[in-house]
């Protein structure tokens, strides 16, 4: 087989990336409409149970919307187990100190000066439905996966840091230094922007939890599917409620807070 034949063959077997994306968007649109019709057709009030573990060869779908519910009344002062767990999970190491090091999750303490009331909470990417970082990205590197996880395609990130400016939650970090010994499931590199991935590798594996939620011994972080009415996160949101930070921006966040 000549080199040109192989070229054509590749195009037939493996889809090339540019037209492929358009096809995918079309398919998603069609898939979405079909699913919506099917949902209505089954019966009102009857929902198919969504299973957390999807087969590895299947695409993620908009049937899921992954999110976190954080109970600030349980979040303990001086505890940073979630931060350590996140760093360990993704191989984040201290290089030049907190001013320039990557922070995917950070502990924030709020104090009401008049009453002295203190609130502790972990802050991370809020996984907006309408993410400002995606709006401003000039290369399309910032994107939102259909299941609600906001990510950076570091292959096409040029490190301009517009997304860092646009993010109302200061959730993104820029990598200044050449990194070594990155973990297989968490590729990271110099000159790109990164943030909390909602442990996307764990979600895809079907773990049904994030490293921070697993590490929180106080039970302050709950991971779950906001689209699944029967999930614990949805039930707790329905009964006890949860606030979006800066809700006035209308970004429809994937991370909700209680006790604020």
């Amino acid at each position: 087989m000549s080199h040109l034949d192989q070229e054509t063959d590749m195009k037939n077997t493996a889809k090339s990336s540019a037209p492929n994306k358009i096809d995918q968007y079309r398919r998603r649109f069609l898939g979405g409409s079909v699913a919506a019709v099917a949902g209505v057709a089954i019966a009102p009030g009857v929902f198919l149970q969504t299973v957390n573990a999807k087969p590895a060869d299947q695409e993620v779908t908009a049937n899921n919307r992954w999110g976190l519910l954080i109970d600030t009344t349980k979040c303990a002062s001086g505890c940073s187990d979630c931060v350590s767990a996140c760093n360990k999970e993704h191989g984040l190491r201290e290089i030049h100190g907190p001013e320039t090091d990557a922070q995917w999750i950070r502990k924030v303490t709020l104090k009401n000066k008049s009453t002295g009331h203190t609130i502790n909470l972990p802050m991370m990417c809020q996984h907006c439905e309408k993410p400002p970082c995606v709006d401003v990205c000039p290369t399309g590197a910032s994107f939102r996966r259909v299941d609600g996880i906001v990510l950076v395609d570091k292959h096409i990130c040029i490190g301009c840091r517009y997304c860092m400016m646009a993010c109302p939650y200061k959730a993104r970090s820029f990598i200044h230094e050449t990194l070594t010994d990155q973990l297989p499931h968490a590729p990271r590199g110099k000159g790109t922007v990164e943030s909390c991935t909602l442990c996307v590798h764990k979600v895809d594996r079907g773990d049904g939890n994030t490293a921070c939620a697993e590490a929180c011994s106080h039970g302050a972080i709950l991971f779950g599917d906001l689209n699944d009415r029967s999930s614990e996160i949805s039930r707790r949101l329905a009964t006890t409620g949860g606030r979006e930070l800066r809700a006035e921006l209308g970004l429809n966040l994937g991370v909700r807070y209680q006790g604020l």
Binding site: S17, Q24, A56, D57, E59, V60, R145, D147, D153
Partner: peptide
């Protein structure tokens, strides 16, 4: 790489 990143296909 695109299938994995955008669609979560991790075969």
């Amino acid at each position: 790489r695109d299938l994995t990143m955008y669609d979560g296909i991790r075969t």
